[in-house]
C-alpha cells in the first residue's frame, strides 16, 4: 500500500477531533469514549494475530486478563510502582502467552480457536482457586491505584495509548512482514513454498498481539480500578473484541478502531431500551447484517463511498 496525502490528512483530522473532544462532550460520553479506546486497542491486538494470519483466537481475554491481574497484584499486594508493574505485566503476558499458545500455533483452523478458548476458561477457574489471597478469588481486586484523576485525564491517557499502538501497528504492517502475515491468512502452504518459516511469522504475530493485549489490559486495570474474573474472562467481552475487528474491517489498522467505536456507541445507545444481555442479540444481528452486506467491514464501505465521491467530483 502506498502512502497517500489523504492518509495523513485522515489521521491528522482524527487526532484533532479526538484531542478537542473533551471540550464538546459530556463527562458521561467521555467515559464511553474511553471504553471505546480500550476496546479499539484490544481489537487491534486481536487483529494483529487473527485478522492477518486467519488463526482465530478465542483467548484474547486470557492475555488481557494476565496483563490486568499482574499489574493489579504487583501494585496492590506488593507495592510495586506502576512504572515498573506495567512493563512487567506486558512481559508476563508475552511469556504466559508464549508458553500456552505456542503449541496451539501448530494446530490449524477451528482447533486453534477451541484451544485458545479452553485457556480462557481455564484461567477463569484458576484465578478463583489458586492463591485467592493474591487474586481476590471470585470477587477480584478492587481499589487498584489509578494513573490519572478524572474523566478528561483518563481520556487523554487512553487516547495516547491507542494512538501509539495504532501508529506502531500501522507502520509495522505496512512493511513486508505485514504482507507475509496476510499471505499466511490466504494460503499458508504457499508461504512455506515461498521459503518463509511460517511458525516464526505466526510466533511474531502472536507475541506482538500479546504485547498489545498485555499493555492494554494493564492500563485498563489502572483505569477502572477494579477487576473481577467474571467480567474479564467473559464470552461477551471476547465477542465484543472479535466483532469490533470484523465489522470494522479485519487486517487493517483503522478497521478495528472504527469497529470498536461503532460497537461501543451502539451498545451505549441500546442501554436505556435493553438494559440486560439482550443488547448483545441486537448487536449480534447488526454485526451479522453488516457482515453479510460487506464482509470486509465498515472500512470497505467507507472506501467505496470515498471512491464514489472522488469519481463524482472528477466528472
Amino acid at each position: 500500500m502506498n502512502i497517500r496525502w489523504y492518509h495523513f490528512a485522515l489521521w491528522a483530522a482524527f487526532m484533532a477531533v479526538m484531542f478537542a473532544l473533551p471540550e464538546f462532550v459530556s463527562r458521561g460520553t467521555l467515559r464511553t469514549v474511553i471504553f471505546a479506546n480500550f476496546l479499539a486497542i484490544f481489537a487491534i491486538s486481536w487483529d494483529v494475530l487473527s485478522g492477518r494470519t486467519g488463526y482465530i483466537s478465542f483467548g484474547h481475554p486470557f492475555l488481557i486478563g494476565i496483563g490486568a491481574y499482574t499489574t493489579a497484584i504487583l501494585t496492590k499486594r506488593f507495592d510495586v510502582a506502576i512504572e515498573a508493574s506495567i512493563p512487567i505485566a506486558v512481559i508476563v503476558t508475552m511469556i504466559a502467552g508464549f508458553i500456552v499458545f505456542l503449541p496451539a500455533l501448530r494446530i490449524k483452523g477451528s482447533y486453534f480457536a477451541l484451544v485458545t478458548l479452553a485457556f480462557m476458561e481455564l484461567m477463569y477457574q484458576l484465578v478463583q482457586v489458586i492463591r485467592p489471597d493474591l487474586t481476590g478469588g471470585t470477587r477480584g481486586i478492587s481499589g487498584i491505584q489509578g494513573i490519572t484523576r478524572g474523566a478528561v485525564n483518563g481520556y487523554y491517557l487512553s487516547l495516547t495509548l491507542l494512538l501509539v499502538v495504532a501508529v506502531t501497528v500501522w507502520l509495522v504492517m505496512r512493511t513486508r512482514v505485514g504482507t507475509a502475515l496476510s499471505a499466511i491468512g490466504m494460503n499458508e502452504e504457499s508461504v512455506r513454498g515461498s521459503g518463509l518459516d511460517t511458525t516464526k511469522l505466526k510466533l511474531f504475530a502472536f507475541l506482538f498481539s500479546a504485547l498489545i493485549a498485555g499493555l492494554g489490559g494493564a492500563f485498563y486495570a489502572h483505569y477502572v480500578g477494579a477487576i473481577a474474573p467474571r467480567a474479564l474472562f467473559d464470552i461477551n467481552f471476547l465477542f465484543t473484541i472479535i466483532v469490533a475487528a470484523l465489522i470494522g474491517g479485519a487486517a487493517t489498522t483503522a478497521g478495528p478502531i472504527i469497529g470498536a467505536f461503532f460497537l461501543t456507541f451502539l451498545l451505549e445507545y441500546l442501554r436505556p431500551y435493553l438494559p440486560g444481555a439482550e443488547r448483545y442479540f441486537i448487536y449480534g444481528g447488526v454485526a451479522l447484517l453488516l457482515y453479510m452486506y460487506q464482509p470486509k467491514g465498515i472500512i470497505a464501505l467507507l472506501e467505496t463511498m470515498k471512491d464514489r465521491i472522488i469519481r463524482r467530483s472528477s466528472t
Partner: peptide, 25 residues
C-alpha cells in the same frame, strides 16, 4: 496457489522475501 487477495506484485514479493523478520521490517 496464489495469494488470492494480493496483487501480482505482492505475490512475487512474498517469494522474494528474506526468511528474517527483522530484515522484512
Amino acid at each position: 496457489r496464489p495469494f488470492g487477495e494480493m496483487t501480482v506484485a505482492e505475490n512475487i514479493r512474498v517469494g522474494l522475501m528474506p526468511d528474517n523478520i527483522w530484515h522484512m521490517i
